[in-house]
């Protein structure tokens, strides 16, 4: 995992009572915590429980994190541990009640590591996307929608000629590639997971 200077700065600001920095950390990493909970197939209440514990532990650790740059890894490990805690507790009470359900679903280390890589990539992509001008965001959003909007629809909605959509698409994607948020990424981090492949819910 690369050292992301923006994470280090956010952690430092949040440790100094900067609520906005904390909110930004949560915005950025809530999808990671959520995705790991999803891997463990927790109930909605248990997901809330895990999330609460993870953020609370982070609040307590803010000024003590030895390597703020390693925050995503710390969050993944902590979330995983909290998920297991909740599952173990549920399992115990099932045993006590004589209702032996299925063994808790588990997510192995590889799955969590993959979730972490995808989450980091996604956070960087969203940060880069947020730097685009509004009309660039609108255009790309219509194109990456599943299923994507037709050029005719985009042309009508954004008031641009269909012939200019292709060139604009290429230009905004190039801007995305060159943005600070993405430029530091090491290509090797992405070789294990190409977009659209293997990212199960």
């Amino acid at each position: 995992m690369r050292d992301d200077p923006s994470v280090v700065a956010l952690v430092a600001r949040a440790a100094e009572d900067d609520h906005d920095a904390w909110d930004e950390l949560v915005e950025r990493y809530a999808p990671l915590v959520w995705a790991i909970c999803t891997r463990y197939q927790l109930s909605r209440d248990d997901v809330e429980d895990v999330g609460q514990s993870v953020w609370l532990l982070l609040v307590e650790q803010l000024s003590k994190l030895r390597e703020p740059a390693a925050l995503p890894g710390w969050l993944a490990t902590t979330t995983r541990r909290e998920c297991l805690r909740v599952l173990t507790a549920a399992r115990k009470s099932q045993l006590a009640a004589g209702m032996l359900g299925d063994a808790p679903s588990s997510a192995d280390d590889t799955a969590i590591d993959e979730e972490l890589l995808i989450s980091e990539r996604n956070a960087a992509l969203r940060a880069a996307f947020a730097e685009l001008p509004p009309h660039g965001q609108q255009l790309l959003a219509m194109l990456f929608r599943d299923p994507p909007c037709s050029y005719a629809e985009i042309s009508a909605t954004l008031g641009i000629a269909t012939g200019s959509i292709g060139p604009k698409r290429a230009r905004y994607l190039e801007r995305l590639r060159q943005s600070d948020a993405l430029i530091g990424f090491d290509e090797h981090e992405f070789t294990t997971s190409t977009p659209g492949g293997g990212h199960g819910a």
């Binding site: 996604n122 992509l125 996307f129 994607l173 977009p195 990212h199």
Partner: peptide, 10 residues
């Protein structure tokens, strides 16, 4: 691929 990754991220 970049567009697909961006859609996935959002």
């Amino acid at each position: 691929q970049l567009l697909a990754a961006l859609g996935e991220a959002v």
